[in-house]
């Protein structure tokens, strides 16, 4: 199953590559757009779920049951489920897209390294992953150069003798911006959702920065494209909280927007 998943990714990437003038970087960007389009409903559901959970934190009834059943966890859980049901909120709705991101990232990473086939064994495996419609003779060798990068290797630019991981920095910054833009504003000091979002806004950029620093730069191209598309999607849905980019910006609710 996983092998088929990887083969599908490899073939899609290489099909795009073969049809846009053998530019692997552009192929990754277009592939990312494709993934974003396919997962658009899931991402929209995540945003809706996160928004619902956030609003719940400020809901009086919700706050009351937290106090009332603070010592009875079973009853609290029952009451929480009742409110979820009444308000039509799926408590796992905001988690699912995150869950889906991981296999995509891992699959994409494996697909990039397999497609770029940096060794004879890699080329042998890549050749066997190709579907019959692919023009093997035309595809191989894969051009792994994109702008200043070798997409099969971690990237850095040497300035005054120092290797600066520019792509990893951009990955970290765009992930941070995306996380902050989607972080719900909160007036409730005990709001655990906001606290978790705040924590993730730091953890995720650091984690993806480390990924970008360590792994093939093709993965960084995916991260950056995906982050930028995410920001655009949030903005299009009117969910982007631009105030969060300013210091102390998440203390107030953003201006009312279409929900």
């Amino acid at each position: 199953m996983w092998e088929f998943f990887i083969s599908l990714f490899v073939n899609t990437l290489l099909w795009i590559y073969d049809n846009i003038g053998h530019n692997f970087g552009l192929a990754i960007i277009l592939f990312t757009i494709l993934i974003r389009v396919i997962t658009w409903p899931l991402n929209a559901s995540q945003m809706k779920g996160a928004q619902g959970m956030q609003e719940l934190q400020n809901d009086k009834e919700w706050q009351e049951i937290q106090k009332k059943y603070a010592k009875d966890r079973e009853k609290l859980a029952q009451e929480q489920m009742r409110i979820y049901k009444e308000k039509g909120i799926n408590p796992f709705g905001s988690c699912l897209p995150t869950l889906i991101q991981f296999p995509i990232i891992i699959g994409l990473y494996q697909s990039i390294t397999r497609a770029l086939a940096s060794t004879p064994l890699g080329l042998l495996q890549m050749g066997r992953s190709l579907f019959p419609f692919q023009s093997v003779e035309s595809i191989i060798p894969i051009n792994s150069q994109f702008l200043w990068m070798d997409l099969g290797r971690p990237e850095s630019v040497t300035v005054l003798g120092f290797a600066i991981p520019t792509l990893a920095i951009i990955v970290g910054v765009t992930t941070y911006i995306q996380s902050k833009l989607t972080m719900p504003a909160s007036t409730n000091p005990n709001d655990q959702t906001a606290a978790m979002s705040s924590s993730m806004a730091i953890t995720m950029p650091l984690m993806l920065f480390w990924f970008a620093l360590t792994f093939a730069s093709g993965l960084s191209v995916y991260f950056i494209t995906s982050n930028l598309l995410g920001i655009v999607q949030y903005a299009m849905m009117g969910k982007a909280n631009w105030r969060n980019l300013l210091p102390g910006g998440n203390k107030q609710n953003p201006p009312a927007r279409k929900k």
């Binding site: 891992i106 984690m207 360590t214």
Partner: peptide, 20 residues
């Protein structure tokens, strides 16, 4: 997140130098 790091880390060798 940690599982993702571990899974990707498992492939680090093939990323940096490849295997053959």
């Amino acid at each position: 997140a940690l599982a993702g790091i571990l899974l990707l880390s498992a492939c680090t060798t093939s990323s940096a130098t490849g295997s053959n």
